[in-house]
Design a protein around this nucleic acid. Structure first.
Lengths: 237, 237
DNA sequence: GAGTGGTCTAGACCACGTG
DNA sequence: ACGTGGTCTAGACCACTCC
């Protein structure tokens, strides 16, 4: 049982105080030196705690004036922090894939995907289609951690996403998903499969699924033709 | 002319070294103690410089292993998991805009944005820039509901997003944000402002901000050059 | 075990905003 | 002038990774 860093504890305490109405919208938070005194911490730790709240958008800091609460409304926490949301865009679509076995990635490829050089992955490739549409809406590559190779054969195409299947089969828990979205021009191979012109603008979505230890268990790389795909999400307060 | 903080100078030097190919993709950056020695700075200053590069997405830090370069081409990343982060947008960036008054949208335009035909909006246009970068990272159009016109004159460019300013000025609450992300080719006008070639792949992000009644109070339409912008988010279970 | 980054202390001086 | 946050030093111990 590792304990949280001190600055995270202080940040949590302040967050709770804000949510609890101790500091209202626009109200001033204690000064740094006040925090040092009340929590018996150094100024570094106090600043680190405040830095956390700042990137969360909870507080606003002004050089000569002080620290004020920006949005004390306590419900602001809710978000798309739900894995279910991630699958909603795929509803009604099906994913067909082929397995290409366990491979060591070329160094350049590994670096581009920000995976450890020399690491080994089971490579899958596939296309996502929507019934009735002539061309696929995505071409996808999936990299499964070598440790999970025994479960790959049991993967099925269909509604359930690969990562939920793997999590169930492997008996582990996905703790974090990182998602990067960029716009790129279609390469020759992608263009052929997607039936679009080369260099057509495409959405490139890279997701990494990490377990509790921060280890990447699955990485997926999808390319969607720009004119056939829009990534849509919503955030409710 | 006030001089830059020391950590910003060190960060700039490292940024230049990465861009100049001294440290390639995936290569290791000097350790913190090495930076302390070469620049004659304390570890705090070195870490502050590295922190800058980290939030820019240029480097990746791993506890026991070291600091490595993520991408040789500078990519801006925006991490986003809830409304609070959305309000802060890209750290260190500023938004400059002009107001173009109350207008009735052409029918085609309204349809494309999925806004009611004949509805009236205050149109704003602007660019988002990051200090030190020659070209903007986004060109943005904003449509503000006609009912909020009295508050538009009070809007200020700067750190606070337009919708948080409007919510405060108008005394209402944003209940829902919808966000659509697509890949498009840059049009002539966008290409000029963003200093890229026409038809360069760009991320087009459309956000609608709705009040509790589902009424769209604000719509923003941003175009980001693909090679300078990656939309990044994470989801924690 | 050696070396890395993560956390933390106890000081210091400076730049900024408000009185 | 004063108090605020911003920057910075010179140490320290710990947790993690890799050999």
């Amino acid at each position: 049982m590792r304990s949280e860093p001190r600055y995270a504890q202080v940040a949590a305490a302040l967050r709770a105080a804000i949510a609890g109405g101790v500091y209202r919208d626009g109200a001033s938070l204690p000064t740094e030196s006040a925090l040092c005194a009340t929590y018996a911490i150094s100024r570094f730790t106090a600043r680190e705690a405040l830095r956390l709240l700042q990137v969360e958008g909870l507080i606003r800091r002004q050089h000569g004036s002080g620290t004020t609460v920006v949005g004390g409304t306590p419900v602001l926490r809710q978000s798309l922090s739900d894995v279910a949301e991630l699958s909603h865009y795929a509803a009604g679509s099906t994913f067909a894939f082929r397995e290409h076995g366990l491979q060591t990635l070329p160094a350049a490829r590994a670096a581009a995907l920000r995976l450890p050089p020399g690491s080994r992955w089971v490579l899958l490739s596939g296309v996502r289609t929507i019934a009735g549409l002539p061309a696929p809406i995505a071409i996808t590559e999936v990299f499964v951690h070598a440790d999970l190779e025994p479960f790959v054969a049991a993967l099925r195409a269909g509604r359930e996403t690969l990562f939920t299947q793997l999590a169930r089969l492997g008996g582990f828990h996905i703790a974090r998903i990182e998602q990067d979205i960029a716009a790129i021009g279609a390469g020759t191979r992608d263009a052929t499969v997607l039936q679009i012109a080369r260099r057509t603008p495409c959405l490139r979505i890279q997701r990494t699924y990490q377990d509790a230890g921060g280890r990447i268990v699955l990485l997926s790389l999808s390319t969607h033709p720009g004119e056939r795909f829009t990534y849509s999400m919503h955030i409710d307060n």
